[in-house]
Design a protein around this nucleic acid. Structure first.
Lengths: 170, 170
DNA sequence: CTGAATTTTCAGAAATTAGTGAAAATTGAT
DNA sequence: ATCAATTTTCACTAATTTCTGAAAATTCAG
């Protein structure tokens, strides 16, 4: 692995571990993303110096996150993996998978707690707080769903406008 | 602690741990956020059933993230803590602190790697990928900075418009 | 100053999470 | 069907992270 690629892979391993993704899985994905060609498990195990079984588990996880696509190369029985060519696609997938696994269940818990009737003044206050958070998270996830209808080009244009949107809104 | 508050605190402990924040710190913050009045360390230790020293470390962390404010109540030597009343403020703080600690250093690493001259075809491809990611992350952080100039009301209006913005942009 | 109240530190224990190797299961060419 | 190639599983070990209790440091009223 070239020094350039190694630096990146190392850094993303560290980053991953701060975001609840394990270091090795982070490195594996960084390696796959930077790779020009489909990557197989043996290559990952060898380049990242981890056991073959660890790679197998990591790949299973990346597949469950829809972050890699399984491919085959003609005349080779091994499984090969690639990441989407479009970084927007990767970002959207990450956001959507995390929403499914973490945000949606959280909203459900909050909704349930808001249905209960408060047994005290402090429960009432707590419910108000929960409602504020609920509204905020709901708004953000709804927005994220909405903008995914747009093309990357359109999203870029919108983001670059930034605070300028407020002028359009009067 | 009422069952309602306990459910929320438990859930946020779990969530925290999936986002690289330790369970206890997550619970502590959930408890503080839902609390009507300023909270002291002994109360947290007692209600969450963790050691006093663990609370001390957790509070230090929450302070370093600017997520709590230290207060004093007259006639009491203990330190008391509160969370901002505005959930938008909390969200912005989280985003900004995470940017400072994780995104900015990542952008620096990527910028450095883009300066190096590629030693091979595959380095060239890797640099292209890194550049794509760099542009994407840069755009998102720039946007996040920009919209923080707006008031929560204005941000809400903008987010609710969602994909509708693209119509305004033609 | 003194000393009680409070907070912080930190070495080590406990708990959790990650990684390995050997064995089992699967796959697909012949 | 057979068998070699490949992937997966899983019990165990290793590494990391979190938590604790005791001691040290700090704070402040008197």
């Amino acid at each position: 692995m070239s020094p350039l690629i190694e630096s990146f892979v190392r850094h993303f391993g560290e980053m991953g571990s701060r975001w609840g993704i394990n270091r090795t899985v982070g490195q594996m994905y960084a390696y796959i993303v930077l790779s020009d060609e489909p990557v197989n498990a043996d290559e990952l195990a060898c380049e990242l110096q981890v056991s073959r079984s660890n790679v197998s588990m990591g790949l299973k996880e990346l597949q469950s996150w829809n972050l890699v696509r399984l491919m085959h190369v003609p005349g080779d029985r091994k499984d090969y993996f690639t990441a989407p060519e479009d970084v927007w696609k990767i970002a959207m997938t990450l956001i959507n998978e995390r929403r499914k696994r973490e945000i949606d269940p959280t909203l459900t818990v909050m909704r349930d707690l808001l249905m209960e009737n408060p047994r005290s003044k402090s429960d009432q206050y707590a419910q108000q707080r929960i409602e504020d958070m609920y509204q905020l998270i709901e708004m953000l996830t709804q927005w994220s769903r909405e903008i995914q209808k747009l093309s990357p080009k359109q999203i870029s244009r919108m983001l670059k406008l930034g605070a300028g949107v407020s002028k359009l809104l009067g």
